[in-house]
Simulated scan of single mutants.
Amino acid sequence: MTKTAVVPDDLRSFYEDWRMSPGLACDGFVFLTGFTGADQHGVLPEDPEAQMRRAFEKVGSVLRAAGLGFDAIVEMTTYHVGLRDHLEVFKRVRAEYVVEPFPAWTAIEVAGFVREGAVIEIRVIARE
Rank of each mutant, 00 (worst) to 15 (best):
36 T>C: 11
40 Q>E: 15
111 A>R: 07
89 V>K: 12
81 V>T: 12
62 V>F: 14
58 K>I: 03
9 D>T: 06
94 R>I: 04
70 F>C: 05
122 I>L: 11
106 T>K: 15
18 W>Q: 08
18 W>D: 11
39 D>N: 15
48 P>D: 02
121 E>R: 09
11 L>K: 03
6 V>P: 02
78 T>I: 05
42 G>Q: 08
127 R>A: 13
21 S>F: 04
44 L>I: 08
61 S>P: 03
47 D>Q: 09
119 V>M: 10
56 F>K: 00
21 S>N: 11
88 E>N: 12
28 G>Q: 07
40 Q>C: 10
74 V>A: 11
124 V>W: 01
25 A>P: 01
86 H>C: 07
57 E>W: 04
21 S>C: 11
11 L>G: 03
2 T>I: 00
16 E>G: 03
38 A>C: 13
80 H>S: 08
49 E>Q: 10
118 A>D: 04
122 I>H: 02
14 F>T: 02
60 G>C: 09
30 V>H: 01
58 K>S: 12
53 R>K: 04
1 M>W: 00
126 A>K: 02
83 L>Y: 05
68 L>I: 08
30 V>F: 01
19 R>F: 03
70 F>H: 11
100 E>L: 13
102 F>D: 10
99 V>R: 14
115 R>N: 11
126 A>R: 01
36 T>H: 09
68 L>H: 05
24 L>E: 02
31 F>P: 03
106 T>D: 15
16 E>W: 01
77 T>C: 09
46 E>D: 06
25 A>W: 00
85 D>H: 10
42 G>V: 13
116 E>F: 09
16 E>Q: 10
108 I>V: 15
7 V>Y: 03
66 A>W: 10
125 I>M: 12
44 L>Q: 02
54 R>Q: 04
58 K>F: 03
108 I>C: 13
21 S>R: 00
128 E>V: 01
69 G>C: 08
102 F>L: 15
48 P>Y: 01
16 E>C: 05
12 R>T: 07
27 D>H: 01
41 H>F: 14
67 G>W: 05
127 R>F: 05
96 E>G: 14
15 Y>Q: 13
22 P>Y: 00
88 E>W: 07
82 G>T: 07
45 P>Q: 07
38 A>E: 15
37 G>W: 04
33 T>R: 08
50 A>T: 03
56 F>D: 01
3 K>T: 08
127 R>P: 01
110 V>R: 15
26 C>N: 00
56 F>P: 00
22 P>E: 00
90 F>I: 09
32 L>A: 07
78 T>R: 00
126 A>C: 07
110 V>L: 12
39 D>W: 07
99 V>Q: 11
83 L>Q: 05
63 L>K: 14
98 V>R: 08
35 F>P: 06
104 A>N: 14
44 L>V: 08
21 S>W: 05
42 G>I: 14
71 D>F: 06
74 V>R: 15
48 P>T: 00
44 L>T: 05
82 G>D: 05
111 A>H: 10
10 D>L: 04
66 A>M: 10
5 A>W: 03
78 T>K: 02
42 G>T: 14
93 V>G: 09
119 V>F: 06
94 R>A: 15
6 V>W: 01
62 V>Y: 03
53 R>T: 02
116 E>I: 07
93 V>F: 05
126 A>N: 02
5 A>F: 04
86 H>S: 10
30 V>G: 01
63 L>Y: 04
29 F>C: 00
